[in-house]
Design a protein around this nucleic acid. Structure first.
Lengths: 338, 338
DNA sequence: TTGTACGCGTTATCAT
DNA sequence: ATGATAACGCGTACAA
């Protein structure tokens, strides 16, 4: 059986209150007493029981992190940065992988809230639906703890949003391609999430502002697993075989772009001479192909930093910005020549 | 303030003991009483306080997961599978990213143990050092809870190891390349972890058994970040420029193999005609290059499944295998022709 | 500066 | 089948 505060107090010849004071760094304890207690604590390697502690304190410096799939390149990196920054600030994190089912997410939120976490971070815009009904679970949760949204935005008390301006970033990227004289652009996306809609919106706005006719016919939604690059390649091949022609590709995720490059290489389509490609997220995948993939850096590390700082501020009772919006940046590599 | 079991008992007109019985699915409750209580619980959306519960139960079905870097492709996937399987079995997981510093890991283990987790999973073989001293923290931890090692092995009471037989798998892969008539093989690795040493050992054993002379001169340790593929490419280029020639490459990780392929493509070296390449982990990177990368599948999902089942068995007090070893498999794709 | 005693919300052990 | 009550280990007023 593990030692309790009573055992320590007895061995040190003081009361439990004194041990508690030493433990929690109270000033009102004589140095000699403090040392006496510390010696015993260290000798027996005593650690206070987290449950008993949490009961009184009503918090144990723990943040719940929810993400759909921690093996997704983008989400994994986000989780990593978040965990690191929280840790550095004395917080621990409970991770839950919810999958992409909105119903399941609701249950996970309740589950993790019952753990009395101090805050909740929802990683990825797939946590935000389009209807009020779909977002009710966020409203409910926000009544208990602050909820932080990474890469998504939702207006509600005690809900804070950190995003990259996907819409205007995508607008800029599309414009760059259009300016380079490429107007038959295939747009590939695999998520209708908040962020996914913003990206698509930015693309469409750019196409419209350049008065490109019938551009919608080159917009495709990919249903499959974006980690299966061969499947993506086949998807693109089908589009090409259906008679559609395109000299540019813009995708909502690097993996989709890689699939396009694979397609092009298979058919000896030269990149970027005959086909220009832009991905999204600026992940490690950008470096795995030849030529390397032009992509959009959405400043993930900056976002996660801001998120944790905002959360810490909220938990300290400070007034913090409800929305923090960063600008993405087009990182030009070999698959484009603008 | 959240409702307590007292509030519920009062509203339902029963004692807290009865509420507790309903909550914990005891049989000794009259159906009508159970329904009465359940109605109140649902009406007020009551959830028992996890801390108070943990105090009594001495556990709250939580497993600590430690990994060096949750954004590493292999580790991320492992974490995902583990979290899913634990969740499916009613366990939650606390994730900590420790980094690769052995000292830091020690602190994290203590930290997470103080949270009263029911077990500890160390993901990745970098948690095992070569000296007794380096592994002391595992011995210490195992006195409190069972420790599960994924992709590493360590002999000690209450420590369980799940591994892929990296050594013999690498031996087989190397042999396959040698049988294809390629004997000047560049071996690239980026980790001296338990698993890293096994792989290297398997490679060397194969080379020796085929009596290849001076093969050690083509073994290189890559110090950099394996997610930076261009850096890997440069590393390979330097080796080639130093006068070394090789017609085969075997790496300890897919990312290193991709770097080699990038090098080859840059110099118009035909794959697999002039250069055969084998990676490790069978990650999504295998599909991102043309031709696709031959790699070694180390059965990660099988391993994580076995790990969780073993852990659950141990927690239930069953006698479980101390070591579970699976066989890896060479997945042949376009970068080899055996 | 230090100690006493109570409260936190459960579960578990007795009675009834 | 149900109720009363004692732990569980800690933080913290309040007292000394």
């Amino acid at each position: 059986m593990a030692l309790t505060i009573y055992d320590i107090s007895k061995k040190a010849g003081v009361s439990i209150a004194t041990v508690s004071r030493v433990l929690n760094g109270s000033d009102n304890v004589r140095p000699s007493t403090r040392k006496k207690v510390m010696d015993v604590i260290e000798k027996y390697d005593y650690t206070p029981n987290a449950f008993a502690r949490g009961m009184g304190l009503h918090s144990i410096h723990t943040i719940g992190i929810l993400c759909a799939d921690s093996s997704d390149l983008f989400l994994a990196k986000a989780v990593y940065y978040l965990e690191q920054e929280l840790q550095a600030n004395g917080y621990e994190s409970i991770l839950c992988c919810t999958g992409y089912n909105l119903d399941a997410k609701k249950n996970y939120v309740n589950l993790i809230l019952s753990k009395k976490v101090d805050g909740l971070i929802l990683v990825g815009s797939n946590f935000i639906g389009t209807t009020e009904e779909e977002n009710q679970y966020i409203k409910d949760g926000s009544k208990q703890v602050p909820i932080m949204l990474l890469n998504a935005s939702f207006d509600y008390p005690n809900v804070y949003s950190i995003t990259c301006d996907d819409s205007s970033t995508m607008f800029a990227a599309t414009s760059a391609m259009l300016n380079a004289g490429i107007s038959d652009i295939l747009y590939l996306y695999d998520s209708r999430s908040y962020s996914g809609r913003k990206k698509l919106g930015g693309f469409m706005a750019a196409m419209e502002s350049y008065h490109i006719a019938d551009f919608e016919k080159l917009i495709y939604f990919y249903e499959g697993n974006n980690q299966d690059l061969s499947e993506v390649e086949n998807f693109v091949e089908k589009i090409a075989k259906s008679g559609k022609t395109f000299h540019g590709v813009i995708t909502s995720d690097d993996s989709l772009a890689i699939g396009c490059i694979k397609y092009a290489q298979k058919h000896n389509i030269r990149i970027p001479d005959e086909l220009s490609v832009i991905g999204y997220n600026d992940s490690m995948l950008t470096g795995c192909c030849t030529p390397e993939l032009t992509s959009i850096d959405n400043k993930l590390e900056t976002q996660t930093h801001q998120l944790v700082q905002t959360l810490l501020g909220v938990l300290s009772g400070n007034e913090m910005p409800k929305k923090s919006i960063f600008s993405g940046k087009l990182i030009e590599r070999g698959t484009t020549r603008f």
